[in-house]
Design a binder for these strands. Structure first.
Length: 202
DNA sequence: CGGCTTTGACCTGCGC
DNA sequence: GCGCAGGTCAAAGCCG
């Protein structure tokens, strides 16, 4: 299944589309993700505050599974944020009082990835020692004060660093959309909608 | 005309 | 207290 920009059944016209590309993930590489306030994996080899999806890692959540030696994340960023909510981190909050924070570093030419939620840009700021500006977004859903920052990696501009703050208090439009497709493979929709749902070779 | 982005100004925290 | 840097606000402009 693949959406096209003219496919009006796609609930989010801003989605990233993978046309008839034999390898839709060819241009995308999720290199790191940092659980700044909590860990995703219960893995003895994990660094503090960072999950590592290696062979010995034990999936802490049902969203993650091993398939033919490959760890497959069936969650996208949006579901990952929900995972954060369930983590036992003591509900530490940042200075903004938004609670959990999670950062992703990924190789991408596109900065504004579609993660299923709708965002409104409210600021842009140049950062010291960084040639690329930082963009600020807020979730536009009423009552949801989740924010995200997007900036280019100062060391390697081919990488984009996305930082999420807070937890959505509503379901993603995309999640709702996927839930209405019982015949679809569980990972298929997310894989098409969000490149964040990736696979790690182990 | 409504929604979204841009951008300069303003606010706040922190180090000296 | 002062200056700097990061974060946010809000008016103006753009676009469909």
């Amino acid at each position: 299944m693949s959406f096209s920009p003219t496919d009006h059944s796609n609930p989010n016209p801003n989605s990233i589309f993978f046309p008839e590309n034999p390898d839709p993930m060819a241009d995308f590489e999720l290199s790191d993700y940092l659980m700044l306030d909590a860990g995703v994996f219960e893995d003895d080899t994990s660094e503090k505050g960072m999950g590592v999806a290696n062979e010995s890692a034990t999936p802490k959540h049902s969203n993650m599974q091993k398939n033919n030696g490959v760890f497959c994340f069936s969650f996208s960023l949006l579901s990952c944020l929900k995972i954060c909510r369930s983590c036992k981190s003591g509900e530490k909050k940042n200075k903004l009082g938004l609670g959990h924070r999670i950062a992703f570093r990924m190789k991408s030419e596109i900065e504004a990835m579609d993660d299923g939620y709708k965002w409104r840009k409210y600021g842009k700021k140049s950062v010291k020692n960084s040639p690329s500006p930082r963009n600020y977004y807020k979730c536009v859903s009423g009552g949801c004060n989740v924010k995200k920052r997007i900036e280019r990696d100062r060391d390697d501009k081919s990488y984009v660093i996305t930082t999420y703050e807070g937890v959505h208090n509503h379901e993603s439009p995309y999640t709702s959309y996927c839930n209405q497709m019982p015949l679809m493979a569980p990972n298929a929709c997310i894989s098409q909608s969000s490149p964040f749902s990736s696979s790690f070779s182990t």
